[in-house]
Design a protein around this nucleic acid. Structure first.
Lengths: 201, 201
DNA sequence: ACAAACTTACCTAATGCAAGGTAGGTAAAT
DNA sequence: ATTTACCTACCTTGCATTAGGTAAGTTTGT
């Protein structure tokens, strides 16, 4: 139709711009419909492309999903460090920050919540991604927690391994109820209560 | 082929038997593949029916899903009371029982975990079912928790409303990690630690 | 008591449509 | 001259649902 649509000089620029738009669109649709529910055609249209146009950049729906997840991870690691707990010294408080941040990006939270559950099945393309994610996360956090326990900032009557599991569990679980009723569930505040418990009052 | 396949006298008997088999098969497939991923053909075959045979009993895939959930609810309410917390007097300990029971039925846990996440989308056929489920559950439990607080069995520095939310969150969250790595995550023991926290040591 | 009329529990075959992916081309960039 | 970034047209498969039939079970009239 119009020639105004794509006015980018170099190919590199065009590619970068297209991929970015695709990933953004895909994130939204995956978040809203899950991986299975999301349709390539919709994603393509949202990125101003046809379906084959999209497939030129990402060879298959699975590839696209992995790209979305990788990108998400990259951004998150940029924003927070490797351990979600943050710096030694004041652990848990930066986790609290993360929960507060999450309340501002319901789309992303929904993306991960739906995909995590979907990917419990072993044959799901993101199965290993999420299993690794939990494993790495817990492993990273465990050291920080031990530190905190040694310094008396975190109660020591529960092993650090268990604490990591509980932290992820509480975050995930709160997200579910919050996604159903964002107005009603004050995720950050309740997570705060939980953190207080772990500090030992 | 053979006339041995269906040797049931009355129609009522046949219908009851068929519906039972269908619901059982559907539960398994929904648990393994989610609602979207499960195929009517597979469910039908597992129930010794053709697809239209199945549809004779449940008018659509959505109807089938609702039937599965209703049946699940019925069985659960039979096993436990209306409140998951159990009797007044010793609350939380029966919740602990529930978690231990859940460890023996991974298929059911997976069914609910995957479906809950899937049904976060408003247009999902089970959306209202699960939202209600949380609302009712929390409402039922809140009274029991207040009792426990009044008798000093449960710490009183966290409002009962928040406690109900945290209990469901911890259960849901633990289930996710447990479903990924059942060997590694000792769901019941960790939930026990959490319960201890809520008792105030 | 029993046959005619009806209802139920299925089946085989076909429909329809959604959705991922391919073939092969064109025009712009390199 | 070649590679890249797309597009149009097409293909294929998967899958829920419908059309229409048959045989067994059930009800009713007499």
């Amino acid at each position: 139709m119009s020639k105004l649509q794509q006015t980018r000089r170099t190919q590199a620029e065009r590619t970068r711009a297209s991929k970015e738009k695709i990933i953004q669109a895909a994130s939204e649709f995956f978040a809203q419909q899950g991986y299975r529910g999301a349709k390539m055609a919709d994603i393509a249209k949202a990125a101003n492309l046809t379906e084959p146009g999209l497939l030129h950049h990402f060879a298959s729906k699975t590839h696209l999903l992995m790209a979305v997840l990788a990108e998400r991870d990259r951004v998150d690691r940029e924003r927070f460090g490797p351990s979600l707990l943050g710096e030694m010294g004041n652990p848990l408080s930066s986790l609290q920050k993360l929960v507060e941040y999450n309340e501002t990006v319901p789309g992303l939270v929904q993306l991960f919540t739906i995909l995590v559950a979907e990917s419990i099945q072993e044959q799901h393309p993101a199965h290993n991604f999420f299993m690794q994610r939990y494993q790495n996360g817990r492993e990273q956090d465990i050291e920080v927690l031990r530190q905190g326990q040694a310094q008396g900032e975190i109660r020591s009557d529960i092993p650090a391994e268990d604490l990591t599991i509980m932290l992820y569990a509480m975050m995930d679980g709160l997200q579910i109820q919050w996604l159903f009723e964002p107005e009603k569930i004050d995720m950050a505040r309740i997570f705060g209560q939980f953190v207080r418990l772990l500090r030992g009052e």
